[in-house]
Simulated scan of single mutants.
Amino acid sequence: MSRVLVWQWGRRGAGPRFALNLAEAIDSLPGLDVVLSLSARAEILAGDKKVPVRMLPMETYGSLPGLLMRLLQAPVLVPHIMRAVRARRPDFAICAMTGPLDLLMAVALRCSGVPYAVVVHDAVMHPGDGFPLQFMLQRLLLWRADVMVVLSRHVAAQLRQQRVLRGREIVMSSHPPFDYFSGGAGAVVLSAGRVAGPVRFLMFGRLLTYKGLDLLAAALAMMPAGLAFECRIVGHGPESAALRALAGLPHVRVENRWVPESEIPALIAWADVMLLPYREASQSGVGAIALSAGRWVVSTNVGGLREQFQDRSRALLCEPTAVAFCARLVELAERQPLLPEVPADPGEGGWSAVAARMVADIEKALVGRAAMAI
């Protein structure tokens, strides 16, 4: 029986959800046991939510001053983490998504003789994304990692242009559908069919420049007069000219706010079509949620999005122009009735299959590194 430690110490957003789904999938595989380490402040643990895997919660931080304090406490925290790791005796660890405190875990793992892999979601910083030290800390973490896992060939190519590989191979994986709807922890049952009325478009996530807010505003402004549709732009981001332009369009509602984890399933269930008008992207967790719910996806053909959606029957790709994006929206708005389908078994693209391949490839890479060290 091999034991895997999965950790992700973010408080909210996609990181804890990705870690939970990955840990559940690993734990379901024969011959594997898992320990999941999340922030004790993680939104996904709020209330009475039950996590069906062995847990190792860590007290992290709730603000920037709190983060700085935790970093200053590293001489005390690292021995504490080491004791916790050694008590669980993992064979190797996986960082599910990087964060500011990961170097503390990396040091504790190294001192405990536990190798670790890092799932690299983004190799370079998107405009307006994160905080200035985020990618410097990620590169330090990758420099010390035993294995790197990527979810798209696009990110793999970006990593190869950096100096972090140092001769190590990259483990290729993919982004499974986020498990809000198929029976995992906190899953929601989707209703059959849809409410009659205009097609419902949704753009959801962080409202940042690289997400193509200006492209979407221009595309929606081109929609034919009299075409029935509703569009919601929901997420958190700085006020911008593009958001103001979107808010001024007919049939469009902008909701600039943080969306709690508990509201996401209902928000996705409202939509017929998820909009990804991105100007650049590694891959899309929002798109993964939409696919898991049987919703349509309209995406620009940039970065790793082509890999993620090109073989999906309910995903439409287009060039990153307002004219091309508008044409896809019109195509779907005129396709009535536009019924969401019951999500199919994701098969080789589901969490269990992806986790099995990922663990096997990590173990193979670790054996190779051990052989080279002899």
Rank of each mutant, 00 (worst) to 15 (best):
H236N: 15
L165E: 04
V147L: 09
R232E: 12
L220F: 03
G287T: 06
L103P: 02
V342A: 14
T321R: 12
G62F: 05
A46P: 00
G205L: 09
E280M: 07
E307T: 10
V155W: 07
G186P: 13
P238D: 08
L151K: 11
F201W: 08
A360G: 12
V119H: 00
A356F: 01
K50E: 14
V124F: 05
A333P: 07
I289E: 07
G113D: 10
F201V: 05
D122N: 11
Y180I: 02
R357T: 09
L32M: 09
C95A: 12
Q134R: 12
R295Q: 04
G237N: 09
G183F: 08
A106L: 06
V164D: 03
T300L: 04
N21P: 08
D48T: 13
G303C: 03
Y61W: 14
C95E: 11
S28K: 12
V195C: 02
A14S: 14
M105G: 01
L339K: 11
V164S: 01
L249N: 03
W296L: 08
V118S: 10
M222K: 15
A117M: 04
C326L: 01
V298Y: 05
L103E: 11
L67N: 00
G248L: 03
A281Y: 00
S262G: 12
P320S: 10
W143N: 10
P90I: 03
P176Q: 07
A42Q: 02
V252Q: 07
P100M: 09
V35W: 02
E255G: 06
S173N: 08
L216S: 06
V124E: 14
F325R: 01
L36T: 05
A241H: 06
P277E: 05
S173Y: 05
L77R: 15
R11F: 00
G99F: 03
R369V: 00
V323G: 02
A242Y: 07
A288L: 04
V367F: 07
V119C: 12
M97K: 14
L165R: 11
A219I: 00
Y210L: 04
R314F: 06
G13M: 09
D91V: 01
M58Q: 15
F131G: 06
V150M: 04
S28M: 05
M203E: 07
R335Q: 14
A288C: 02
L305G: 02
A219S: 14
E255P: 07
R160Q: 14
R257W: 01
D102S: 11
